Computed example of a mutant assay.
Amino acid sequence: MSLQDIDWSAPWLAPYRAVGQAVAAQAHQGIAAALNAAASAPVQFVPQSALPPGEAYEHFIFHTRQCPSRDNLHDFFNGLCWQHFPQTKTRLNQLQAAQIAADGVQPLRGPVRDALTVFDENAAFLIAPPALWEALRAQDWRRLFVTLRPLWAQAQLLLFGHALLEKLVSPRKPITAHVYCAQAAINSVVNLDAIIAGQLSAAHLGSKPFLPLPVLGVPGWCADNAAPGFYADTQIFRPPRA
């Protein structure tokens, strides 16, 4: 898959569409240069070759304010996330660097760095009425997507994880986001980046504050989910564990 395969009409790409299309149009000069030219970010994007051999990626970003980027979809979406959620990305990098400073680079990341990676790669932010949150927490998929379907007109799911965005270039029913459970209810996209960044801590993320959500179940995100039977697939819409 390549940048040419991105369907910019996909509803989950709406927040990224304007800048993303501008970057994609300039990608012939390299992803790093195209990202730098399209919009500001708290880091400068540099070619992957700028990362010294043996140096941890997050450590390098923290100390140089440079983000090594390869010419691929994964790093393209990572750059877009830096541009759209600069405070959240900066906070994640600070937390990663602090863990590396405390423990070094270990063969196994540990619970905090694992949670940081899950957040960075696969998180999503849900702004929704309480009833939708209750159904999501219960993993009551029929209630969430069928019974309460009209409530989704009052909801918004924003994808943050760049690996999640990359996977959705080729949409498949099993693709699942880790919905971030904020410490306090978030009712608007206004100041969302600052609010999320202000909540993130090693202790909070170490508790794994995520809920699974198969993203193609979101009303309007897949034509097939207009039929209630779409959600009967228990391999995807799994019942909660006993």
Rank of each mutant, 00 (worst) to 15 (best):
S2Q: 15
S2D: 15
L3W: 02
D5R: 11
I6H: 05
A10T: 09
W12Y: 14
W12N: 13
L13N: 04
L13K: 00
Y16N: 07
A18G: 14
A22Q: 07
A24M: 09
A27G: 01
Q29K: 15
A33L: 12
L35K: 01
N36Y: 01
S40H: 15
A41W: 00
A41I: 02
A41V: 04
V43H: 00
F45Y: 03
P47C: 09
L51H: 05
P53Y: 02
P53W: 00
A56S: 14
F60Y: 09
F62P: 05
F62M: 10
T64A: 08
R65W: 14
R65Y: 13
S69W: 14
S69F: 14
N72S: 13
H74Y: 08
N78R: 03
L80I: 04
W82E: 10
Q83T: 03
H84Y: 11
H84E: 15
F85G: 09
P86N: 05
K89I: 05
T90V: 13
L92H: 01
Q96N: 12
A98W: 10
Q99I: 09
D103V: 11
G104V: 03
R109S: 07
G110R: 00
V112T: 00
R113Y: 00
D114K: 00
L116D: 02
T117R: 03
T117D: 02
T117Q: 05
A123L: 07
A124V: 00
F125T: 10
I127H: 00
E134S: 11
A135E: 09
L136Q: 06
L136K: 03
R137F: 06
A138L: 11
R142K: 12
R143M: 09
L144N: 06
L144S: 04
L148E: 15
R149K: 12
W152E: 08
W152I: 08
A155D: 02
A155K: 07
H162G: 04
A163N: 11
L164P: 02
V169S: 07
P171F: 01
P171C: 06
R172L: 15
K173I: 10
P174M: 04
P174S: 03
I175A: 00
V179M: 08
Y180D: 11
C181G: 07
C181V: 10
A182Q: 14
A182L: 10
V189I: 12
V190Y: 15
N191P: 08
L192S: 11
L192A: 11
A194E: 12
A197I: 02
S201R: 05
A202C: 02
A203S: 11
H204I: 07
L205R: 01
L205W: 00
G206P: 05
G206N: 04
S207K: 10
S207E: 14
F210W: 10
L213S: 07
G217H: 07
P219A: 01
P219V: 03
C222G: 09
D224L: 13
D224P: 09
D224G: 09
D224V: 13
A227G: 08
P228G: 01
Y231H: 06
Q235K: 14
F237K: 09
R238L: 10
R238T: 13
R238I: 12
P240Y: 01
A242V: 15
A242E: 14
A242T: 15
